[in-house]
Write a protein that binds this DNA or RNA. Sequence first.
DNA 1: CGCAATCTCTGACTCAGGTCAGAGAATTCC
DNA 2: GGAATTCTCTGACCTGAGTCAGAGATTGCG
Lengths: 286, 286
Amino acid sequence: MDQIELVRDFNRYYTRRIGVLTDHYLGQDRPLGEARLLFEIGDGADLRDLRARLGLDSGYLSRLLRSLTRQGLVSVTPRPGDARVRTATLTEDGRRELADLDERSRRSVAGLLEPLTLVQRDRLVEAQTEIHRLLRLAAISLTAVADSAPEARFCLRAYAAELSTRFPEGYDRAALLPPGTLGDGTFLVAREEGEPVGCGLWQRSAPGLAEIRHLWVSAAARGLGLGRRLLTGLEADAATRGVTTLRLGTHAVLTEAIALYRSAGYREIAPYDDSPYNQVAFEKSL
Amino acid sequence: MDQIELVRDFNRYYTRRIGVLTDHYLGQDRPLGEARLLFEIGDGADLRDLRARLGLDSGYLSRLLRSLTRQGLVSVTPRPGDARVRTATLTEDGRRELADLDERSRRSVAGLLEPLTLVQRDRLVEAQTEIHRLLRLAAISLTAVADSAPEARFCLRAYAAELSTRFPEGYDRAALLPPGTLGDGTFLVAREEGEPVGCGLWQRSAPGLAEIRHLWVSAAARGLGLGRRLLTGLEADAATRGVTTLRLGTHAVLTEAIALYRSAGYREIAPYDDSPYNQVAFEKSL
DNA sequence: CGCAATCTCTGACTCAGGTCAGAGAATTCC
DNA sequence: GGAATTCTCTGACCTGAGTCAGAGATTGCG
C-alpha cells in the first residue's frame, strides 16, 4: 500500500473514531451548531467576529443566538461606542453549560485513554504532536512578494524586534533592507492561514553569487522545520536564476540558526562584510 | 497542558483539517450519504449488509438507493436464491463515478503531502500508524465469559486451527480445555467492535498456584500489544483471587510468545507437566 | 398448508443546517 | 444634512439526514 493510501486509511479510521467520540459528548441534546457557538463565544465576542470565525451566514447566526438566548445561555447587547455591532456574552447558566460540555469532552477523551498504559499514552501524545507539527508545516505556503509589500515589512519589523532582544548589543533597524532596494533577488513570505509567520530573501551580489538575508520564523511557527523549508525554497529559487554560490552571515548568539546552516550543507568561511551582526559567515555551492 | 488537553487539541485540529480536505473532494455535488454509499457498495453488496455497515434505517437506505438508481449509478436486483434480499451493484457509470471520487480523494491527500520532504512524509505515516495501532488497542475490550460461551469456543477453535499449522507435529484438539471444565479460574475474551479477536484463561491448580493457558491473538489483531494486555489482565484478575504464583507452558516454535513471557517478568522453569506442547515452561510470582 | 419471520419499500414526518433578499438601525463620509 | 456604508435581523425557502409505522413480498418452519 502506498503512502497516500495509508494516509487515507488513517483519516477514515480517525475521523470515524473521533466522530463517535464527539457525538457522544456533544450531541447529547444540543445541536452541534449551538455547541460550537458556545465554545466560540467564550468570554464574549462581537457577532461579526463570530460570523467570520465560524463562517456563518448572518441570518443563521442570528437565529442560533436567538435560540441560545431563549434558553438563557447567552445575552446579546449592542456594543457601547458602535451600536451597529452587537456582542454576545455567556450568562451564568451559559458558562455553567460550557464548563459542562468541556468536562464531558475531557471525560470522553479520558475514557479513550483509559485502557492504555502510561507508556502507551505518552507514545500516543508524542505521535499526535509529530503529526500536528508536520501538518502545520505542510499548511504553510511560501510566496514571493515585493520587498515593499506589507507582509514583507511586517516580517522585517518582527525580525528586527526579536533580534533587538536577543543580541546583547541590540539591533539597529538601519541594518534592515530598505523597501524597494532588493534589486536582483527574491523575497519569500511564509503564511499560515493567511498570517505571515516567516520570511527570507536572497539578493545577488555579483554574477553567480548571492547572499541570503533576513531569514526569520515567528515564535508561533518555531519548531516546525519552517526555517529549513524557507532556506531550501530560497536555494531552489536562486538556482533557477543562475546563482551558483550562496553566502550568509549571522550572529554568534543565534545558535539554532548556525546549526541549521551547518546541517543544510553550508561551510563556515571568513566574514565577507563588516556588518557587526554578521559575526559568523557561511557559504554553499548549489 | 495535560495529556487529555493535548489529545483534545489534536482532535480539534485534525478533524478541522481533514474535514476541509474531505469537503473538498467529496462535497462537490453529491450528498455525503450517497458518496459513502457508493464507496460501501464497491463490488456489490446486499442491502441488509449495507444497512448494518453504515448503520442506516431501512427506509432511508431505500431512498438513497432510489436516488442513485435514478442517476444511473446503481442497479438493485433481488438476490437469486432468496428474493427477499436485494443486492446493489454499481453500473458502468457508477464504477466510473467511484473511480472519480477515489482519484479526487487521492489527489487531495497528495496535495496535503506535497510540501513535505520524503523523510517528513515517512515520519507522518509512521506516526499515524502508531496512533492507529494504539487506538485500536484502546478500543478492544476484555470481558470474562464462561468457558462454554460461544465466543470462548470460537476463540479456542481458531487457536487450535492456528497451532495445527504452526506446530510441525500438528495440534490435537483434545488438548483444548473442554467446555465447562475451567473450574476455579477466569476465561477472558478480547473483542474489537464486537468481534472476538483474542482470548486467554487462568485456572487454579492448587491454592495460590494457577496456570495460564490458551493465550491467543487473532492474526487481524496482532502487533497491537493485545497479547500483553491479555496477559496483564489475567494476572490482575488472578491476583485478586488469591493467586500468588502463575505458571504457563508453550511450544518452542512460538518465539514471539516466549519473548512476551520473558519481557513480562516470567522466568523459565523446568516443564511442570507432560503435555507435548508445553516444551518451554515459565513461572512468575505476583 | 398456514403462520411466523425476514427483508424491503412507501409515505408521512421531524430536525439541523444553511441560503437569499430585503428591511431597519446606526454610523461614516462628503 | 443627506447619501452611502456597515451591521443585524426577519421571513421565506431549500436540502440533507434521519425516524417511524405499516404494507407487501418472500421464505422458513412446524
